[in-house]
Write a protein that binds this DNA or RNA. Structure first.
Lengths: 224, 224
DNA sequence: GTCTATAAGGCGATAGAC
DNA sequence: GTCTATCGCCTTATAGAC
């Protein structure tokens, strides 16, 4: 951890030195992608190294040139999908605008990331119990930091009177569980499209649940 | 399925005839409870039959007197925890009162069941991929029926003008994902107690998200 | 960087005694 | 209803050739 509570950035689990060629890096990413797919479909423990290898087009033993163990592959999947939202979505909370506008942007970014990385998220949300305690703690650190940043923006909106929700901690749990639930039911091409879900969820979360009146979050609030 | 869409009640997976003594039934429940605990902690595929047996105090082979396979034990865990909410919570939607009052009762019943059966819910929410297709379909049927019943009450509240939420289907997903998320973060004795969470979530879901004004859901609405 | 071959052990499930 | 003993298969991971 750094002094402001932000998780320290670490190298993804690797059996090879940090400096490696483009081809090796690409192979690693192929393996992680193939593993995420099979883990998501069958569960981590039900998948063998041979099966991951087959999906990449190599033999099982070759995977050990890129990763030290099967758990190390799971760690790479979970780390990528847990770190990315911190890097891509949290800047939306630092941008200009009211807390309501920034939270609305985060809802959109969060849902779009859940969908873009839906395969990896199924693994990252379901298989954390299979990580070693150290790796588990690191992943949990990223998630807690993300939660804390959201909670702070909600609390700021409460202090300014812009949000009427009574409890920032409870609202943060409710909001993030609701967003993460997208993985359970959203299937592209069936029902609403993603843009419509984002629009609907911004209304449900920011306007209704957090209680932000229109003048604080609509784009035209500056013109009032 | 029955003609009204309600899932047909089936016997839990069993290797023995339906009629059995009280001792055998009790042993089955011990096994299911022990399996739920170990599955929740380590994941279904990481747990061996010998480990489940050890937790009960017997040898691995003895489990096959009560269950036909390891998957059959998982099925019993998932079935119990998926059927119970239909039997215990859905009657709350048929009771007297406004849609808002009935949904508020369901929020409380749902959260209390999630907590009372928290170990089994961790399994039922995470290990569905390990079920055989037939068993998986049956479990999904119960979940879909539960969702449908909630959605219908929300839709009824919308029609009467009591609820102001714009989309019943989206609101149902949001509500149930938010409630089920309790398993991820609630730990008794740390932070709010369960009664406070129920009170807070009834406010967040029914009043705020669904948009029910106080006169429709407060107990004293009859006296107005 | 990938291969073949294999070590060392765990797995689910079964047979048959008691 | 539980036991001991075991079958046949699959697992993660390693050794060493190429």
């Amino acid at each position: 951890m750094t002094s402001d509570g932000r998780p320290a950035v670490s190298e993804a689990g690797s059996a090879v030195p940090t400096t490696r060629g483009a081809r090796t890096r690409q192979r690693r990413e192929e393996i992680v992608a193939a593993a995420a797919r099979t883990f998501a479909e069958q569960g981590y423990a039900a998948v063998g190294m041979r099966e991951i290898a087959e999906a990449v087009g190599v033999r099982g033993a070759s995977l050990y040139h890129h990763f030290a163990s099967k758990e190390d592959i799971l760690y790479a999947v979970c780390l990528a999908v847990t770190r990315e939202p911190n890097e891509e979505n949290l800047p939306l909370l630092d941008a200009a605008g009211t807390p309501s506008q920034r939270l609305a942007a985060l809802v959109g970014g969060h849902l779009r990331h859940l969908h873009r990385r839906r395969t990896e998220h199924i693994v990252g949300l379901h298989e954390l119990a299979a990580l070693t305690p150290g790796h588990r703690a690191e992943i949990d650190g990223y998630r807690r930091y993300y939660q804390r940043r959201v909670r702070e923006v909600i609390a700021a909106g409460m202090r300014s009177g812009e949000l009427t929700v009574p409890d920032a901690a409870l609202a943060t749990f409710a909001m993030l569980d609701m967003l993460n639930g997208l993985s359970n039911w959203f299937r592209p091409g069936r029902g609403l499209d993603l843009d419509a879900v984002v629009e609907g969820y911004v209304d449900l979360v920011v306007v209704r649940m957090l209680g932000s009146p229109p003048q604080f979050w609509r784009c035209d609030h500056r013109h009032i």
